[in-house]
């Protein structure tokens, strides 16, 4: 069984936010009203965080970091869920079961990375958006929590395809939307357990670190530090 992981190279990342957009479209993440967005209810599974500002105005050099779900091996969200609406799969993906969620938001309160987003209400989407919904991903109703799933529907698709073609799933068959969209190939994705895979090699690079890994969450999304 593979163990899926991701490494994001901050040296290559240009903060263009292509991953943010690709993720939002791929996963039918709700577009909220302007009011709600200003109120802090904008929904992103992949989000560009500004970690710090270097330099003085007007010569500011912000340090940014794309942050999706860390897909922890020891997830704090799963521990506290009262109804098993979130669980960890054998391949390491922390998945969500939307019809099971009661909307208590305990997982949101316990995620140290604040990755979980809540459907505060359900608003009419622009017509163009409704036309381009991804049929592989369910549209979530109001009142439930959601988050990045490493585009698990793509894995399902890829494994079915491989099965139909009577072959094993090969590396590269399955990549999440953000990885695909990145114009500078800053994101590597694959099987962490396969010591020869790109992602595994990158995850052991001297620049590699995990966000807040001192908390013991064992994140499977790792970063390569930006070095000038």
């Amino acid at each position: 069984m593979p163990k899926y992981g991701m490494v994001i190279d901050l040296n290559k990342c240009t903060s263009c936010q292509a991953c943010v957009t690709a993720c939002k479209v791929e996963n039918n993440v709700q577009i909220v009203s302007e009011d709600d967005a200003q109120h802090g209810r904008a929904m992103f599974w992949m989000k560009m965080l500004t970690m710090e500002f270097d330099g003085d105005y007007p010569n500011i050099k912000p340090k940014t970091l794309p942050r999706n779900c860390m897909q922890c091996d020891e997830p704090s969200c799963i521990k506290v869920c009262p109804v098993r609406a979130t669980y960890i799969r054998e391949d390491g993906i922390v998945a969500q079961i939307y019809p099971q969620c009661i909307g208590c938001r305990y997982c949101m309160a316990n995620c140290p990375y604040t990755v979980k987003v809540f459907n505060w209400d359900r608003q009419a989407q622009p017509k163009e958006v409704e036309k381009t919904y991804n049929p592989d991903v369910s549209v979530r109703p109001k009142g439930i929590v959601e988050k990045c799933t490493f585009c698990v529907h793509r894995l399902q698709d890829a494994s079915e395809k491989a099965k139909a073609e009577h072959r094993e799933l090969e590396p590269g068959d399955y990549v999440p939307a953000c990885v695909e969209a990145c114009p500078v190939d800053a994101i590597t994705f694959g099987d962490l357990d396969d010591k020869k895979s790109d992602v595994s090699v990158a995850s052991r690079d001297y620049r590699a670190f995990g966000l807040l890994e001192e908390l013991g969450t064992v994140p499977k999304v790792r970063y390569l530090n930006a070095i000038e």
């Binding site: 709600d36 109120h39 802090g40 209810r41 909307g103 938001r105 949101m108 309160a109 604040t114 987003v117 809540f118 459907n119 505060w120 209400d121 359900r122 109001k142 009142g143």
Partner: peptide, 15 residues
């Protein structure tokens, strides 16, 4: 009817 959007809660203050 409207959902929890009727409250003042947001992210990250979700409780």
């Amino acid at each position: 009817l409207y959902g929890l959007g009727a409250t003042g809660m947001d992210e990250p203050v979700s409780w």
